[in-house]
Amino acid sequence: MILTENLTKYFKDLRAVDGVDLHVRAGEVLALLGPNGAGKTTTVRMLTTVLRPSDGTARVAGCDVLENPGKVRSSVGVLTEDHGLYDRMHIEEYLDFFGQIYDMPAIERQQRIQYLLSRFGLLDARNRRIGKFSKGMRQKLSLARSLLHSPPVLLLDEPTSAMDPASARLVRNAIKTLRSEDRAIIVCTHNLAEAEELADKIAIIRNGKIIANGSAAELKEQLLGPGEYKVQLVEPLDSKELPLPDGLVVTQKGLDWFSYRAPDARKTNPQILHKLITAGYQVVKMEEVQRSLESVYLQAVNHVPVKEDPDVE
């Protein structure tokens, strides 16, 4: 659904996006993470054909962004960083305007508008001018606009940034439903918990380059090293040496627990458990130490070297 190869964008001598490769299939959500000015919005704008790539290729819903920009724009629903609303309009009027632009028949437009207003809890506000809306309502309306023509591809820039927790939950559930409807979705966000909850894949972009790309688990493995496990015992650890496999490094020790890193947990953990039990230790629990996406992100943006360090937007 979305495929980019070596996607690059220069603004004069400024390299805003540098050789980005992305692949999002139907029914997948990709979270694009990165600091402000990393190139997320520029990447999305190239995928919506508003910006022309300086190099590389991008195909959206099977169409090349340079060769068939009209078709690409028809296939994409975009939630832009700025919501792009007209303050003097009413919401139905606003959505109807975009429905006409997307060539939707009048009856279908009306049905779809009613459905989206109901889904995002905006039905009660239908007689108010958009200028009177709160930030969260504006964002929901903007999201409704991007979904109006049921596009197979969605590019959502900060979809929940201005929302209260209940509205944000509503939108996240909507995104999950959209994924289940086989749409390809890119979500640009700074909300890492949201990214972890929604995304099948996460790409971290810095200085225009993708510095990490994969599932949350893969990124944790890749950037934070092997998983860390904690073993809780019934008795306190005595001075005896723990019966652990050769080469296994204990990272921390407490009164009745210890933790270690296991490069290959499927193989190492049963061995450890077996050795402990054989040696007479009573194991209360063995669990993986939770590692947040935030630490992955910080590790990536602060420590992963970039081959070249170009100027970015």
């Binding site: 919506t48 054909t49 832009t80 700025d82 792009g84 632009i101 060539d103 606009r145």
Partner: peptide, 13 residues
């Protein structure tokens, strides 16, 4: 007024 991007991203030529 930052309302132009949705129009530019629409199928309008």
């Amino acid at each position: 007024r930052r309302s132009i991007e949705p129009l530019l991203s629409s199928p309008l030529t």
